[in-house]
């Protein structure tokens, strides 16, 4: 496993978010992620963990606090948001592949349109990425023709094709059939061994234990506990964490 450097990739301080209906999803959540680090966020449903990582690439706005991603301060400035999104890839629970494009076109769309790279060059890279996630032979098919596990691996390759410095995973295995979870986790584990920074919201304890550098527990819109995996699972310091672990282990 590669060791994270000391360079800060994500710095979120006391982030608060309200929805227009008055519900407060984040109540002062803070987190710092260093370059090359793999951070797993766990927590009961409704704890705000998805909302939290979605603020990192400005899919959700926030009202108080500050977030800096790869040196860019997230504000309402649209240029900043576009700059951040180019550096941050995201993998969704529902895959969100583009059903009207072939697998290969799903990968090449953004690099060609956003990075203005020549199509032939991007296609070569896309082939290599599909090879790496083990589905090169499906490149000409449409997402609807693939299994859930295959679709999620395509989604990971699609995010990687933009060469992001940070990858966010929002419950990437939660809507998969049990037998497909492993193939996706394996791909993620291989990624973790590289230089890329990963923030993963998941319930996969084994993945958190063996792959994460740090595990974070969120509850009620706050970060309750932050610890190395071994410590987190065997000797957490907070009552709230123990209760959560009792429920899932």
């Amino acid at each position: 496993m590669s060791q994270p450097s000391s360079e800060l990739m994500i710095e979120a301080r006391a982030v608060e978010k309200w929805y227009p209906n008055g519900f407060q999803a984040l109540r002062g959540a803070s987190l710092t992620v260093r370059r090359g680090e793999v951070v797993v966020i766990m927590g009961p449903s409704g704890s705000g963990k998805s909302t939290f990582i979605r603020t990192f690439n400005a899919l959700e706005d926030f009202q108080k606090g500050s977030i800096t991603v790869d040196g860019i301060v997230l504000s309402n400035d649209l240029r900043n948001i576009d700059a951040v999104r180019r550096e941050v890839g995201m993998v969704f629970q529902q895959f969100n592949l583009f059903p009207h494009l072939s697998v290969l076109d799903n990968l090449t769309l953004a690099p060609v349109l956003v990075r203005k790279r020549p199509k032939a060059e991007v296609e070569q890279q896309a082939w290599a990425l599909l090879e790496r996630v083990g589905i090169a032979e499906q490149a000409g098919k449409y997402p609807g023709q693939l299994s859930g596990g295959q679709q999620q691996r395509v989604a990971i390759a699609r995010a990687l094709c933009m060469e992001p410095r940070i990858l966010l995973f929002d419950e990437p295995t939660s809507s998969l059939d049990p037998e497909m979870v492993r193939e996706v986790l394996e791909v993620m584990q291989n990624l973790a061994a590289e230089d890329i920074t990963m923030v993963v919201v998941t319930h996969e304890v084994k993945f958190a234990r063996h792959v994460a550098h740090r595990v974070v527990l969120m509850a009620d819109g706050e970060v309750v506990e932050e610890a190395e995996p071994e410590l987190f699972f065997t000797n957490p310091s907070h009552q709230r964490t123990r209760r959560f672990l009792d429920q899932i282990l």
């Binding site: 180019r86 969704f92 969100n96 583009f98 769309l109 956003v114 995010a159």
Partner: peptide
């Protein structure tokens, strides 16, 4: 909604996301 979010998270601007992802569907 996830289609627009996926396109935006890949860095596509709103008009580009509409043109290449949302409107075709």
């Amino acid at each position: 909604r996830g289609q627009l979010e996926a396109a935006r998270s890949l860095g596509l601007s709103y008009p580009k996301a509409l043109q290449h992802v949302v409107l075709p569907q």
